[in-house]
Design a protein around this nucleic acid. Structure first.
Length: 589
DNA sequence: GCGGATCAC
DNA sequence: TATGGTGATCCGC
């Protein structure tokens, strides 16, 4: 870099040099920025420099400017070193080479599953806004969603949003029964399909389409029609070259629709470019905020801010984000295996208790439940973890490991839990749980994967694939040069208390934030709607309304509803820097 | 190995 | 008045 005042150079007119310009500004003094609009500050600076030239003061200023210039150069070099090290261009090129478009992956997702089953069993629910759950909403009917009712929402909040809401209790055995029926249909199209919870799954329909000379779209349409014909349940589907894309696509034309991505790199990248980062599995509310803090809202922004991300790899996980930017992920579909289970536990929420007797009674109940589950499913383990939640909702865990397989007897589980809990007292508790980890399978002849019995036995578990193609003598799986696109993910989680959010078709996903405001243009079937949360009215369709309601709710409207209801101030959870984005083995590698 | 935190379903 | 249960993974220590 050039610095003003090289001996040979004094009479040159280096006005074009950035460094020179900055030195002239420096020389002009620290108050220059406050000087307001001088008529020609550059000319003034030149005159000042001319007047000072040769003085000790001038030489000292020149030295300090040189040092600053060098300091900046070191910083820039450090940045460039990091970027060179990260070598994003090469990384992207390597990833691109590994892109596999040969497999047709489908994500199938039942529409408002629990609610649809309830409607099936009680047609009188008709078009009424209703929800399934108790205390907390498991699933809202589409009519209820129009009022802003969402899964995971407290029932009292839901009633505030929709006073005429009908809430029916869960009938898990019915859901499991229909889930099994539907999964059996899916398996006709891919025998090794992977159930992901009771209401969704991943299929590889490449062999099926080939055998029956079907397009992917026709195959999936037929599959969805079959499900409806045999169960009267509707299912939405996404068709794409990998699981992450398929999952995002299945949300696109919900309910009772399907969406196929073109199987070309250009189409995939275009699809990703404007997609909200929040749509990426693994990016939840926290990571969304963290990424937003460095200017990333869409997957396209990943590339825009790649330098920042390279510098902050430790916090964000550059590899994961670059894969996301390119729309590259695993396309391996296979059923979850029993031996992949990592832990088994039981926990219960109750009204706040604080007496030692009450607390120990609850602990004992939880120990009894866990004992049942362990014995029924044939597991033991080496580590017992106690979990408790204070009446402030803060959660704590305490663990104890043994050098032997533990007894799964209720009394022994209770004793270990007690040992962990007593030192913590006194406490005001609203939840107690026990979990056993480092499992040992007591059933040597485990049921075959995909069997009905296995499905029910595993209820509540969510085994995830670790490393799929780890064949002895093969390439080291962690070789950074070897992109592991064969890594599996989204293995079958079993039914949770409620199904995940499933929004209606949107036109919201890839829109920017402004598009979530009532000023956004309606797509089709636009009529006058009023947001149940912010009370604004505008012309939109159901999808637009839902998108807006989600936006509203995500901006703290739930808290407001609570305050209105309880008169108590909402509690903002602190933002913490937790696990970095991605690096989820189940998804990418 | 432990505890906190995040995420999915 | 009032907000779930099960399981996985990652990080820092």
């Amino acid at each position: 870099m050039r610095v003003l005042g090289n001996k040979d150079d004094d009479d040159a007119a280096p006005a074009a040099s950035q460094d020179t310009a900055s030195f002239l500004r420096r020389l002009a003094g620290p108050s220059i920025m406050k000087a307001g609009l001088a008529k020609d500050q550059t000319e003034i600076n030149r005159i000042i420099a001319e007047a000072s030239k040769g003085s000790k003061f001038y030489e000292n200023e020149k030295r300090k400017d040189k040092e600053l210039t060098e300091r900046i150069a070191r910083i820039i070099k450090a940045r460039d070193d990091v970027l060179r090290e990260a070598d994003i261009g090469t990384s992207l090129a390597k990833m691109e080479v590994q892109r596999d478009l040969s497999q047709i992956i489908v994500h199938v997702d039942m529409d408002a599953f629990y609610a649809s089953v309830e409607l099936l069993d009680d047609p009188s629910l008709g078009d009424k806004p209703f929800a399934v759950g108790h205390g907390v909403i498991s699933t809202a009917s589409y009519a209820a969603r129009k009022h802003g009712v969402r899964s995971g929402m407290a029932e009292f909040v839901a009633r505030k949003l929709c006073p005429q809401l009908v809430v029916v209790p869960c009938h898990f055995s019915r859901y499991m029964e229909l889930s099994r029926q539907v999964m059996d249909i899916f398996r006709r199209y891919d025998p090794t399909m992977c159930a992901a919870g009771c209401d969704e799954g991943y299929l590889n329909i490449t062999p099926y389409c080939e055998e029956y000379m079907l397009s992917a779209d026709d195959c999936v349409r037929g599959m969805r029609e079959t499900v409806f014909r045999e169960t009267k349940l509707t299912v939405s589907a996404g068709i794409a070259p990998n699981k992450v894309l398929a999952k995002i696509c299945s949300d696109r034309n919900k309910p009772n629709g399907q969406f196929a991505l073109d199987f070309t790199p250009a189409a995939v990248k275009a699809f990703m470019h404007d997609l909200s980062i929040r749509k990426i599995p693994g990016v939840g509310r926290v990571n969304e905020r963290l990424l937003d803090s460095v200017g990333i809202q869409t997957c396209g922004d990943i590339y825009t801010h790649r330098a920042t991300l390279a510098l902050m790899d430790k916090y964000f996980g550059l590899h994961f984000l670059l894969q996301t930017y390119l729309g590259i992920a695993s396309n391996v579909v296979q059923p979850g295996q029993r031996e992949e289970r990592k832990s088994i536990g039981a926990e219960r929420t109750f009204h706040t208790i604080s007496s030692k007797e009450d607390i120990l009674r609850k602990l004992e109940e939880v120990a009894a439940e866990l004992n049942e589950d362990l014995e029924r499913t044939g597991w033991t383990g080496k580590t017992v973890t106690l979990k408790y939640k204070l009446d402030t909702y803060q959660v704590f865990t305490r663990a104890k490991s043994f050098d032997r397989w533990i007894s799964t007897k209720k009394e022994d589980l209770f004793a270990t839990g007690k040992e962990l809990l007593l030192p913590e007292l006194p406490l005001r508790l609203r939840l107690i749980g026990l979990r056993v980890m480092k499992l040992k399978d007591l059933r040597v002849d485990a049921d075959k994967p995909g069997s009905i019995r296995r499905f029910f036995e595993n209820a509540g578990s969510s085994p995830r694939k670790k490393r799929r193609l780890s064949v002895a003598g093969q390439k080291e799986p962690n070789d950074p040069d070897e992109l592991q696109l064969t890594q599996d993910g989204y293995e079958d989680a079993m039914p949770g208390f409620y199904e995940h959010e499933d929004l209606e078709r949107d036109g919201f996903d890839e829109a920017d934030h402004d598009a979530n405001l009532p000023t956004s243009k309606p797509t089709s079937a636009a009529t006058e709607h009023t947001c149940p949360v912010c009370a604004r009215t505008w012309a939109t369709d159901n999808a637009g309304l839902n998108a807006h309601v989600d936006y509203c709710l995500s901006r703290g409207a739930i808290r407001e509803a609570q305050q209105t209801a309880s008169g108590a101030p909402g509690v903002l959870k602190p933002l913490t820097l937790g696990a970095k984005v991605g690096k989820r083995k189940s998804q990418y590698q």
